[in-house]
Design a protein around this nucleic acid. Sequence first.
DNA 1: AATGAATGAGAGTTCATTCAT
DNA 2: GATGAATGAACTCTCATTCAT
Lengths: 214, 214, 214, 214
Amino acid sequence: MSEQNLDEVIYNQEGLTEKQKKILEAAIETFAEKGFAATSTSEIAKKAGVAEGTIFRHYKTKKELLMKIVSPMMFKLIGPIVIKDLYKVLDQEFDDFEEFLRAMIDNREQFLKNNIKTIRILIQEIPFQEELREQFIEHIGKKVYGRFRRIVQHYQEKEEIIVMNPDTVIRLIISTVLGYFATKYVISPREWNDEEEIERMLGFLKRGLTPIKK
Amino acid sequence: MSEQNLDEVIYNQEGLTEKQKKILEAAIETFAEKGFAATSTSEIAKKAGVAEGTIFRHYKTKKELLMKIVSPMMFKLIGPIVIKDLYKVLDQEFDDFEEFLRAMIDNREQFLKNNIKTIRILIQEIPFQEELREQFIEHIGKKVYGRFRRIVQHYQEKEEIIVMNPDTVIRLIISTVLGYFATKYVISPREWNDEEEIERMLGFLKRGLTPIKK
Amino acid sequence: MSEQNLDEVIYNQEGLTEKQKKILEAAIETFAEKGFAATSTSEIAKKAGVAEGTIFRHYKTKKELLMKIVSPMMFKLIGPIVIKDLYKVLDQEFDDFEEFLRAMIDNREQFLKNNIKTIRILIQEIPFQEELREQFIEHIGKKVYGRFRRIVQHYQEKEEIIVMNPDTVIRLIISTVLGYFATKYVISPREWNDEEEIERMLGFLKRGLTPIKK
Amino acid sequence: MSEQNLDEVIYNQEGLTEKQKKILEAAIETFAEKGFAATSTSEIAKKAGVAEGTIFRHYKTKKELLMKIVSPMMFKLIGPIVIKDLYKVLDQEFDDFEEFLRAMIDNREQFLKNNIKTIRILIQEIPFQEELREQFIEHIGKKVYGRFRRIVQHYQEKEEIIVMNPDTVIRLIISTVLGYFATKYVISPREWNDEEEIERMLGFLKRGLTPIKK
DNA sequence: AATGAATGAGAGTTCATTCAT
DNA sequence: GATGAATGAACTCTCATTCAT
């Protein structure tokens, strides 16, 4: 598949011993469930089936363990959009804005489903880890934002979407899409017709962003 | 103003000693800054200028202290919408949907500005505190949602907004508004023309939710 | 009745306020149940229905409270034997040794039943409270023992009991009687015919202490 | 000697680190001296020359430490009587009841001397530790009592001791013997001729339990 | 006399981390 | 590389006691 599971990225990478993988697995599990600060290293060791000392042989501190889990996420979180899809868009690979949105949503949803625990940890810890915030601004704030803005401008020029400050457009799109993901994966309502919801959301975005006719 | 500051609700309420108020103030400050689990009671005591034992004289456990801070938020968070504005809307106090949205956004923004730290703690801890999740479902999920749905249906009947599953309509509105708040208060971009942003958001919502003409 | 209830001695004595009585009552209850060291003053206060400070208004320390409860016991524990019964015996009020034992056992059993909790506290704390041990030696070791020895010698002279070191005789009697009380009140066996047990014990003591015929 | 020192049983057993032994030694010492509730873990740590955390690495709680010290006592306390001596008695290894008593007293006295501190802790804590009481009833109340009763019946059949409810006979013997031990080891009188005291006690028991001639 | 808020020392326990094996 | 015993600082919480009211 085109989208790789981040779990692999993190703990199936080469050079990791069996124990290291177990540690990462256990840490992700527990950090996601109880939070970083409320998780003890002895708990991770027990869950991973290794001695307490073994964790510190591979990761100097508990915080380094967190960072090794969460940091690569930053790059992957928005990676594909940035790198691959930008050129697809500019090369007219997508007929229109709606098709681009559809592809992007699908692509990110795969990623999200595969890495939900790690993403949860990332979101929880961003407010408290200076280092993560810096990385976030560096990667999302600069690289992604810049390229996303070019895509929006591309469709504005094609008169498919309204001429409005691209930052605002991006915000409106992201808010709407995150709201969809949050509802689906966090609230997870009992009645949920996914296809319908996607169509409604796309309709809403399309109408909301349609250029105003003179 | 009509909107009261929740800080008052929490720690200026009658029956609290001077020390208790100091404890609450210090706890809110520190929980917001470092997170609940990473905050020690000795730190709170020091910041509040009281003995550590004093905290436990008033709050049996550290968790009870958290709950006493965060729980009333639940009720206030969406209180006004539910109680006051529902009848304003149904009594035609608002001419149209846009005016209703404008009022709601303004009202909640005041509240948010006054209680930003406590809200931050609430959001951070909801994933880890079963009790909070239950209260959230009880208060937001049931009371608020039900009434918000009636408002949406009211405007749908007046043909001001599109006929679509009200739950989806609510989600789209809330996502958009939360995105606005998050950008303004969390990301807080250097360039930000608030009036323009509100107008753009309202325009977007209006267009996105306009009934489709036959 | 001739035998007074020690509870009265302790907390119905004149000059005690209602609150003081409640404190003593609660303290006896709790010390007996959980032990002195494992009982907190706040627990006593709660059970007595008084403020924590009130305890310390009447008793400078927690230990003083213990002493005020347990110390008078020392005097009462063996009081009657010493004072009254000694002269009864020497004045031939009791026809024989068996009748004396019978009277003593009955008398002490009444006392024990009325003051079981306080006695339990006394027994528990004697190993740890120097002061109690001193009092014990002073009152039991010297006064009681001396007089008890005279009684034994009295019956030895009357050739009712064996001529043997009186200390040993006393020890054998006390061991046997305490064994009876302990079985009855601590082990409390389901099947227990009290009259029979008393007769068996008295028969055993009589036979065991009968002078050896030449 | 045949009788092993329980201290060995407790803290010389294999698999214990040097530190663990020190901890047990220090705990026994201090619990015996000040009582369980009045002993702090920091005190034990200091006396044992280990860090406080080390105690909790080996014993989850302070109470578990108590139990690990005191629980094996239950089994050893009356062990030999039950297992070995029962058959010695029934196999006529002892000529008469007096010889049996003599052997039993000697055997238990060795044990008592070797484990006096631990036994003291056991006696002190039995009233407060439900778990200990249950074990006591299970081991002493059921196993020992049953076998002791058979020994008594054995000598009753041989017409060496009086025909009387065996439970009462056992109680009279145990009371007398415990009284001897208590006087010797707890009161420890200055003048004490041990051989004489044993002979007097055995004489007393023998006479007290002699069958009544018709 | 009685209160109960306040204290700070110290309780039992947990923790991330180290290090000899 | 892996272990797990050991650490001691820090944690949450309890305690006996004080004192202003």
